[in-house]
């Protein structure tokens, strides 16, 4: 009897400790998640109240419109331009600066610095740098004899410009994760490889990269999710323009729900976004099962 009471008391403590988190997740994550599913099957008035149950009409509307595929395409292009670039640059920088010495501390601080720059602030700085006539980028280009570029005003360049800025802001975190991963590799592995006469590039290929693959994998999953969720820089730099050339999925969703006040179709778009992200995460995990090396 005493044993049972003790077990009950133990469980009560367990749920007591979990309660704050469970409450928070319950009210602001799980409830709204199911509410989104519910809203996506209804039409709503501009105040967010349910008007009618419409089955999958919202989804049919979205999936039947050219506009939506365009925004999906832009989101993927954006992911494709930002993620590999950011990973490769961060990886090179981390490989070159992971050793503990007096100079590397400063390099580490600089390369990680963008993690501390809020994306809203960074976007405003970059908007000024991108300015067609008075911006510094076009000024620097003039040294190279290149004509001014309409970084954010030319549909051919806008997505590239937003991508450059995004790579810059993402390097901080990516670099930190990869640097931590490299620092976690035991020093004696290198020592013994050195004994066997391995050169530095061989050591990177045979030791660092395989042992770093979980960190690289983690970063690529996080980056795909992050890229598909990008909003702030688009809102500040281009507002989806010019000519919809930077109208990524989340920006489109924001417009639908909070500018046009169509919460039903907005929710349906959010559900589609969730499914796309889920699908990508699963695919990445499938690939990783074969490729990633866990010690």
């Amino acid at each position: 009897m005493g044993n049972k009471l003790a077990k009950f008391k133990e469980a009560a403590f367990g749920f007591g400790f979990l309660m704050p988190s469970l409450l928070g997740f319950g009210i602001f994550l799980f409830y709204p998640f199911f509410k989104s599913v519910y809203l996506s099957l209804h039409s709503t008035n501009p105040r967010g109240q349910i008007v009618d149950f419409v089955w999958f009409d919202n989804f049919k509307d979205i999936l039947g419109s050219e506009h939506f595929y365009q925004s999906i395409k832009i989101s993927f292009l954006f992911a494709l331009m930002t993620i590999p670039t950011c990973l490769i640059i961060s990886l090179c920088l981390a490989l070159l600066t992971h050793k503990k010495n007096k100079i590397n501390i400063y390099f580490q601080l600089i390369f990680a610095s963008s993690i501390a720059i809020p994306i809203g602030n960074a976007s405003v700085i970059w908007k000024i740098l991108f300015h067609p006539t008075a911006g510094m980028f076009n000024y620097f280009l003039s040294f190279l004899g290149i004509d001014p570029i309409g970084w954010l005003t030319d549909p051919a360049y806008a997505l590239i410009s937003v991508s450059i800025m995004t790579v810059w802001i993402s390097i901080g975190f990516t670099y930190l994760v990869l640097l931590s991963g490299i620092k976690g590799i035991p020093e004696d592995l290198y020592e013994s490889a050195k004994m066997d006469g391995a050169g530095s590039s061989a050591m990177v290929r045979k030791i660092t990269l395989p042992l770093l693959s979980p960190a690289i994998f983690f970063m690529s999953v996080i980056s795909v999710i992050g890229a598909l969720q990008s909003f702030s820089q688009i809102n500040i730099l281009t507002e989806g323009g010019p000519a919809n050339s930077t109208n990524v999925v989340v920006y489109d969703l924001y417009q639908e729900a909070f500018v046009n006040y169509r919460f039903g179709t907005g929710s349906a778009q959010a559900i589609i976004l969730f499914l796309i992200i889920l699908l990508f995460t699963i695919v990445q995990f499938r690939i990783a099962e074969r490729k990633v090396h866990y010690s």
């Binding site: 602001f28 994550l29 998640f33 989104s36 999710i225 969720q229 729900a257 959010a270 976004l273 992200i277």
Partner: peptide, 11 residues
């Protein structure tokens, strides 16, 4: 796993 945008409208 749930992106924040999915819960944004109900929240």
């Amino acid at each position: 796993m749930i992106p924040w945008e999915v819960t944004m409208i109900p929240n």
